[in-house]
């Protein structure tokens, strides 16, 4: 497993807002075909890390490698050109447009300078089918008429449509009911099975144990642990990592020993 090279590799990322250091020497890896859960308490730095990857915030120092190549991401455009897509919590869908129109928004296919509706519709349907989406009855439905889970599906499928290599999902199930959560988690799994590197930000430990291959836990701006999810990984371990940055022999060394270790 460890012989797989990460598709996205962040090393020693530092980021400060004024005097506050939000990210401290963060190492974070995303593997193709795997779901990497990013966990941590509010304020641990998850969102900042994601925004650094997305190019929304510039980093102060550190290296980003994509497919082994050193890259610099200066803006959202750079990120999407690399194939990094982020599905934010508020989804950013146009309710008055239909599923196809939303999936192709801003990147419409044209034929003779005019919208090529049937080609876009077919591609949208193919993409949804490739993700084994079974919850949408029609791609011509307005998003207004869709449920929360269906909307999440559309937002994720939109990211897939652009042959993204890395898709970051920001709490995709936070607002969903039980059945819809299950649908979205299945979709997350299917995404990874297609070879996409998936980052799942979530506060739900059960859902992480169910769907994630790896977990990166953040604690006060540092990555406390980067572990593989095995059958012996428990909910308690994850909760301890989130609340104290340490669980058993994994995680950050206590403050007294910190200097010694970093030296």
């Amino acid at each position: 497993m460890s012989n797989d090279k990460p598709i996205l590799e962040l090393q020693g990322i530092n980021k400060s807002f004024g005097p506050v250091q939000v990210l401290r020497a963060v190492d974070f890896n995303v593997y193709a075909g795997k779901v990497t859960a990013l966990i941590g308490d509010n304020g641990a730095g998850k969102s900042t890390l994601v925004k650094c990857i997305a190019g929304v915030h510039p980093t102060d120092s550190g290296e980003v490698r994509f497919n082994g190549q050193s890259v610099s991401i200066h803006g959202p455009k750079d990120a999407s050109e690399l194939g990094i897509e982020i599905v934010y919590q508020d989804l950013a869908l146009c309710e008055n447009l239909d599923v196809v129109q939303n999936m192709f928004l801003g990147r419409e296919r044209l034929k003779h300078g005019l919208l090529d509706g049937s080609s876009m519709e077919q591609a949208a349907r193919d993409t949804l089918a490739s993700l084994s989406v079974r919850t949408l009855k029609s791609v011509r439905q307005q998003v207004m008429s869709l449920s929360g889970g269906q909307r999440q599906t559309v937002a994720i499928a939109r990211a897939v449509l652009w042959n993204s290599k890395v898709i970051i999902l920001d709490e995709p199930t936070a607002a969903l009911g039980v059945a819809q959560t299950a649908q979205v988690l299945e979709l997350v799994r299917n995404l990874a099975n297609q070879g996409v590197g998936v980052v799942l930000i979530s506060h739900n430990m059960n859902e992480i144990l169910q769907v994630a291959d790896r977990v990166s836990a953040m604690y006060l701006g540092q990555v406390a642990a980067d572990i593989e999810v095995t059958e012996s990984t428990t909910r308690e371990t994850l909760v301890e990592l989130i609340t104290s940055g340490r669980s058993g022999d994994v995680g950050l060394i206590t403050n007294d020993a910190e200097e010694e270790v970093t030296a």
């Binding site: 146009c94 008055n96 447009l97």
Partner: peptide, 19 residues
Amino acid sequence: GRHLMAVGGNPEAARRAGI
């Protein structure tokens, strides 16, 4: 026209889509 409808529906979504 499609972009116009999108801006009318959700300007923030349109902006993020690069419109």
